[in-house]
Simulated assay, not measured.
Amino acid sequence: MAVTLTKDSEVAPEDTAAAPTPARFRPAVIAVAALVALLLAATVFAFVSWRQEAGLASARADALESAKRYALDLTSYDYRTMDRNFADVAQNASPGFAAQYKQVSDQLSGIIGKYQGVSVGTVLDAGVAGGDTSRVDVVLFIDQRITNTQTKDPRTDRSRMKMSLIDQDGTWKIDSLSLV
């Protein structure tokens, strides 16, 4: 027990446990500050991860809807409006795919016109096969009801395709197409 002298020279016992020194609090303060910093960093990381995931989900959904529309453009045509049908596809294509599509459509337009071909495409189902915010691969299941002067009855062609789309200035464009 410590003894303290007072003004009147009385001896009074001093309570040593009453006021802890600042050095005793230092490890606790550091631990609390570290815990707060760790929680703040985890919150920021979770928020950034959530935003990236939301951006990816949004990109995939937008690309999927675009692919469905473009698939209808690709599989629906009328010999009376072929130029407009082909222009719709080219407008929604990357420069590389547009050049390839022009070569194919130039060859097909003569045949479609000669036999008065009409095709109506229907997207039965579609799903995202993979991708990121700048490129998305979509698999599409499509039926085409085709009529022409060469066949008595309409026929149905079932097409399964993989369409790769790229984001060009905020718009999804067809970059490649393959039958699967």
Rank of each mutant, 00 (worst) to 15 (best):
F86M: 11
A87Q: 09
Q91S: 11
Q91L: 12
A93C: 09
S94R: 02
P95Y: 13
G96Q: 00
F97I: 00
A99H: 10
Q100T: 09
Q100I: 01
K102R: 15
Q103S: 15
Q103R: 15
V104P: 00
S109E: 08
G110M: 02
I111W: 10
I112N: 00
Y115M: 07
Y115S: 12
Q116N: 12
V118E: 13
V118L: 08
V118C: 01
V118K: 13
V118M: 11
S119P: 11
S119Q: 12
V120S: 14
G121D: 11
G121H: 13
T122S: 14
V123E: 01
V123M: 02
V123Y: 06
L124Y: 05
A126F: 03
A126N: 06
G127N: 06
V128Y: 02
A129E: 15
A129M: 14
G130R: 03
G130L: 10
G131I: 07
D132W: 00
D132R: 02
D132F: 01
D132T: 04
V136K: 07
D137F: 09
D137H: 05
V139C: 00
L140H: 06
L140D: 07
F141M: 08
F141T: 05
Q144A: 10
I146R: 09
I146K: 10
T147H: 07
T147G: 08
N148K: 04
N148L: 05
N148V: 05
Q150T: 09
Q150G: 09
K152L: 11
